[in-house]
């Protein structure tokens, strides 16, 4: 079987779809459990469905960001594998890094003729072994983390523990945001800073000044993002 034929073969589509099915089934069982619990604690349908709708709208924008990497991944490792790996754990750049690191062991270079069946096999194992790390750590740690948090609440002042948790949220998003804007600023590029600034101000306007329009709140993040990225593109692009 030719290389291109193999990496896009029906068998590989089938084998790759199991993980995507796992992802979808998992989301489905968690959603069902949470909706049942929302009804059980007496939340109004309007509230939790509004929240769900907002999450769906919010997820649309960032779902666009890997599309360009996805197309280059398809060219290198075939559509079924690219499809599977962008639907599971590991950012696109992580998958690309693992592909080139593991295929290098058999002197396969991504994007050249040296990347053949053997290099592809190594890449498949590389991505699987890498993903296994996160899955295993979660398997062993998440339920323990939840116990630790429960114990912290019991042992310390709940007000402080709540601040501790909100501190991790602030810290995490400060990390993600600053990672995007700081380095380009040092190189005199302000496009990303502009995108972030406009987006943040838009978010503030929608959530503060337009707070009474409930439907507007559901769209808030999507609108803020669009305002930020389009302004930055128009000004610095």
């Amino acid at each position: 079987m030719e290389f291109q034929e193999l990496i896009n073969s029906p068998g590989l589509w089938l084998a790759s779809s199991v993980m995507v099915i796992a992802v979808v089934i998992q989301a489905f069982v968690f959603l069902r459990a949470a909706l049942a619990e929302a009804r059980k604690v007496g939340m109004s349908r309007e509230r939790y469905i509004g929240g769900l709708r907002s999450a769906v709208i919010t997820a649309i924008g960032p779902s666009f960001s890997p599309v360009i990497v996805l197309l280059s991944l398809i060219a290198v490792i075939g559509a079924p594998t690219a499809w599977m790996r962008l639907n599971d754990i590991g950012a696109a750049r992580t998958e690309l890094a693992m592909v080139s690191l593991s295929s290098a062991l058999v002197h396969g270079e991504v994007g050249t003729a040296s990347f053949g069946v053997e290099a592809f096999t190594y890449a498949l194992w590389g991505m699987a072994l890498n993903n296994m790390g996160w899955i295993l750590v979660s398997l062993f740690c998440v339920h323990r983390m939840s116990k630790i948090v429960e114990r912290l609440y019991a042992k310390y002042n709940p007000a402080w523990i709540r601040l501790l948790m909100s501190g991790t949220i602030i810290g995490l998003f400060a990390y993600l945001l600053s990672g995007q804007i700081t380095s380009p600023m040092l190189h005199g590029q302000y496009g990303k800073l502009c995108a972030g600034f406009v987006s943040a101000v838009t978010m503030l306007i929608i959530t503060r000044l337009l707070a009474k329009y409930q439907r507007m709140q559901e769209l808030a993040l999507g609108l803020a993002m669009l305002a930020g990225m389009l302004t930055a593109q128009a000004t610095f692009g």
């Binding site: 993600l176 995007q180 930020g228």
Partner: peptide
């Protein structure tokens, strides 16, 4: 510019 706008 998607990611900086999103995170901000």
């Amino acid at each position: 510019f998607i990611l900086p706008a999103l995170f901000a």
